[in-house]
Design a protein around this nucleic acid. Structure first.
Lengths: 265, 265
DNA sequence: AGTGTTGAATGGCAGGACCATTCAGGAGGA
DNA sequence: TCCTCCTGAATGGTCCTGCCATTCAACACT
């Protein structure tokens, strides 16, 4: 490393970008491979002939891009990561969020995706994968049947089931889009599991869908998916009605204030 | 701003991320709007109670995410950017390269998108929009029939036609996803218009598809789309065969070198 | 009125210092 | 011999201070 430095000094004016580009290039050509460790910040700042702050900025940028992972302590440093979908999805999800896209549009898109994904998954996934999906769906039902369901866990499991299904298409593009849409939808999404009736039905529906997939019954599966989204639409409409009512309440708050429903001890 | 600081001091240990998250949150809920300017680094490092270096790292991370743009000099600073797809597409392209995602996967995804989009566009678009699409497809054919077709223009028009079609669904998600995939794929994509036979057929096929959409004939349109992607597959396979041959040439270069097919002047 | 100059604001960079975390290896005891 | 605890070195995280380059607006000068 010292006899044949991997990196060269940088131009002024945009030293940070230059450093980041050089390291990124090294990763791209495979001069450094996943799992390997880059030199320490203190070594790099010598090799590049730039200040440590500049090197740090570059490393943070690469970390943000998902190319490296940074560990503290002795034997720490910047390690090249395996390519991950997460960051690509995050960028797209960020964008979708910023576009303030209506829940309707996202849901419509998700339904069309789900239909394609399900069809592909049935034809391509191994039986074992289908079985795992079914077990996950059953587990989701169990979580929701508890007295005090942990909604975070439910939400997370639902997310994982969708990604697992997408992965069963054997086409990573579907997984990328699914993750991005989930991130972009996250704000609306939490809402949908709040409704008691909807969430119990939706868990059952997940189970039926997974069962149909495991049984290689594409039409049945698509039918359950259709039902799922009909429920979702209805749930959304109900919520809008509720919100309208709440706005009306806000204008006439005294009425409710005079009828406390939680008596003191 | 001074009486009611927008940001709060940060915890130690991950100050940089904390700063970035707070600013990102401020952008997300619209507390700062696109085009507006954030306080200067020197102001922020006071508001956050962190060092200027930390603030700088946070700003660079946000810049990398595509959320802000940084200008030097007086009246410079960090400006909130309009949401842009560019970064999402770049991340996708990065991932595709690192993972060596096959063109097959992308094409499969595009075909499924196209089918959904076409169906929706037929039911939702105005007659005028369908007519414009048809005219664009005809124009594409004219471009390709010239003696020396401008391939950049052809490519660009093809891109625009796809986006126009996506917009006809009246669902912005389809348009954004289409744009993201197009940008992320630009590297693979250019290849496909190089083949003479493929590109003349594909232009004709675009015209037929647009005509079917204008005529409200969804099945016909889907059928043409299917044909389009069959051609694409075939074109790709041909190219792979060609590349294999070229590799074979490399291994046995003497044979071909001894049979020059371009005689000298 | 036009033009050149200057100064302030701002981001970019350098270098040094110290802290917190992590891990390997050694010291000491069971 | 083996286990536990401690210590020190390596490393990233943070802070500070200073200076430079760029940009723009206000001002002075012609």
């Amino acid at each position: 490393m010292n006899e044949n430095p991997m990196f060269s000094p940088v131009r002024v004016g945009r030293a940070g970008e230059d450093v980041a580009l050089q390291i990124e290039a090294a990763i791209m050509d495979g001069r450094v491979k996943p799992g390997e460790r880059l030199p320490s910040e203190r070594d790099l700042h010598v090799q590049f002939g730039a200040s440590r702050g500049v090197v740090r900025e570059a490393l943070r940028a690469l970390k943000q891009k998902g190319l490296i992972e940074i560990k503290k302590g002795a034997k720490g440093g910047a390690f090249i990561k395996e390519a991950e979908l997460h960051n690509a999805s995050e960028s797209l999800g960020l964008f979708l969020k910023l576009q303030r896209i209506s829940a309707q549009s996202l849901i419509e898109f998700r339904e069309s995706m789900d239909r394609t994904i399900t069809t592909l998954a049935i034809t391509r996934a191994e039986a074992a994968e289908k079985q795992e999906l079914l077990e996950g769906a059953i587990q989701l039902g169990n979580l929701l049947n508890k007295d005090d369901p942990d909604m975070d866990a439910v939400h997370e499991l639902d997310r994982r089931l969708n990604i697992r299904l997408a992965r069963m298409t054997k086409n990573p593009v579907f997984e990328w889009i699914m993750r991005a849409v989930q991130l972009g939808l996250s704000s609306h999404d939490a809402v949908l599991y709040e409704d008691d009736e909807y969430r119990s039905r939706t868990a059952g529906n997940w189970r039926e869908t997974a069962q149909a997939i495991a049984d290689n019954e594409p039409l049945k599966a698509l039918s359950y998916i259709g039902y799922h989204y009909v429920m979702l639409q209805k749930c959304l409409e109900d919520r809008e009605v509720q919100e309208d009512n709440q706005r009306a309440e806000g204008q006439d708050a005294d009425f409710w204030a005079s009828t406390p429903d939680i008596p003191g001890p």
